[in-house]
Design a protein around this nucleic acid. Structure first.
Lengths: 124, 124
DNA sequence: TTGTTAATGATAATCATTATCATTAACTTG
DNA sequence: CAAGTTAATGATAATGATTATCATTAACAA
């Protein structure tokens, strides 16, 4: 049920995410979209982020602090700075493994790999 | 500063985590430790989980919902069921890649790889 | 044994996210 | 095209996990 209807707010949220590469939080998307859409509500941003993620149009990045979002859904990984919490892309080439940004001069101290799906019981 | 002192509560939290393999939440650790230590406070559990993690004695698993903890720090990965949110271990053999539990009959629909460290700016 | 202060227990505060609800606006159907 | 249905919105309250506060207790050094 609940047929999806068009919404300018949703378009604005998606467009904002697709135009940037800094993995913003919901709050940051809100502040950005607000510039062109002054009446938009933070709740609407949260709602649409969730909806867009479930449609597979954006990615939600779960980190230690607030969730971040990514409008680019091609296969790639991420790097989080433990101090400033910034998230950088780690591109995955089909041949090589990962290519950090050309100017990356930080240190990688660890990583975490999580698989998602349905366990034996929940599959049914 | 702030020299670390011995605490029975901290020992109990660590011991509990090392004895189980179900990746409990802070609340679940609290309920478990409470059996042998009725006076322990939830705040103490949170405090010690954070401290033990910073000491490298346990792992914090950041998932979509509440954080979970793992008392086994050898190199291994995780699988989260999107429905029941249970977390399973994914063992990593030095030679092969991953070995899911023998009886694993679920489906893996995706994965997320996150690197941690310090970015160029925060390194200094 | 005593003094210092880290750790605790209880609970208030915080903060990201979600729920609620009256209003608005997409779309459908007559 | 007008009217009705209901998804989406904006504003805000509620939730829930985690952290902060603070008076009290207990490690441990002197």
């Amino acid at each position: 049920m609940a047929t999806l209807r068009h919404s300018n707010q949703r378009d604005a949220v998606l467009k904002d995410l697709q135009a940037r590469y800094d993995h913003p939080t919901a709050e940051e998307v809100y502040l950005s979209v607000k510039k062109d859409f002054p009446s938009i509500s933070l709740a609407t941003v949260y709602r649409n982020l969730k909806l867009l993620e479930s449609e597979g149009l954006i990615l939600k990045i779960t980190t230690g602090d607030s969730d971040r979002f990514d409008g680019h859904t091609h296969n790639h990984y991420h790097f989080t700075c433990n101090q400033c919490m910034k998230v950088l892309d780690v591109d995955v080439d089909s041949a090589d493994f990962c290519t950090l940004p050309k100017d990356f001069d930080g240190v990688i101290t660890g990583h975490s790999l999580m698989f998602f799906g349905l366990c034996s019981k929940c599959k049914n």
